[in-house]
Simulated assay, not measured.
Amino acid sequence: MMSFNLNEVALLLVVLVIGWLLGLMMSGRGKYRRLWQDEQAVHRSAIKERDARIEASHARIAELERQSAGPIGAGTATAVAGAVHGRDDLSRISGVSQAQELSLNEAGYHRYGQIAALNAEQEATLEARLGLKPGTIAHEDWRKQASELEKGHNRGLFG
């Protein structure tokens, strides 16, 4: 006759409970298996919907590029976004980089008219903010350029 001590009985019960739980989870009728399968189905449908939206976006972009007679060039998106938000493309002023344009926007300058109307004190403040040598704005004649751009003239007039 075989006798078990208390530790062996406890270990045997733990193993039986673990086996029973694993059996429930692995069985086709188990609640957890059904939940896992449902989650997998939801995930697959979400992936399909995402892929369909991405494909539709690519098709719309291709259609817009065909209508505009070519792909969108560098800087075009910035100019369009600026026009939508009531901003001019200040980087069209000779001497203003894209980074400086962002600094100008942060300082509250969004339109050519604002640059054209700068006074000497505002110029000095902007030069300090942009890290330019004193007199740079006057030397590069940003006010005249901004005035001309506001009237609809192209950047080519300024270099």
Results as ranks from 00 to 15, higher is better:
M1Y: 01
F4T: 11
N5V: 05
N5E: 14
E8R: 13
V9M: 11
V14E: 14
L22S: 07
G23A: 10
R34Y: 02
A41T: 13
R44M: 10
S45I: 04
K48T: 08
D51P: 00
D51M: 11
A52F: 02
R53M: 11
R53F: 06
A56M: 09
A59D: 09
A59Y: 02
E63Y: 03
S68N: 14
G73C: 04
G73T: 14
A74F: 12
A74V: 15
G75I: 06
G75E: 09
A77D: 05
A77V: 15
V80E: 09
A83L: 08
A83N: 14
V84A: 12
R87W: 10
R87V: 03
S94N: 07
A99Q: 09
L104A: 08
N105Q: 09
N105A: 03
R111E: 03
Y112E: 01
I115R: 04
A117E: 08
L118Q: 02
Q122I: 05
Q122R: 10
A124R: 13
L126H: 10
G135S: 11
I137F: 00
H139T: 07
E140M: 11
D141E: 11
K144L: 13
Q145W: 01
A146H: 01
E148M: 06
L149H: 02
L149E: 00
E150C: 00
G152Q: 06
H153E: 06
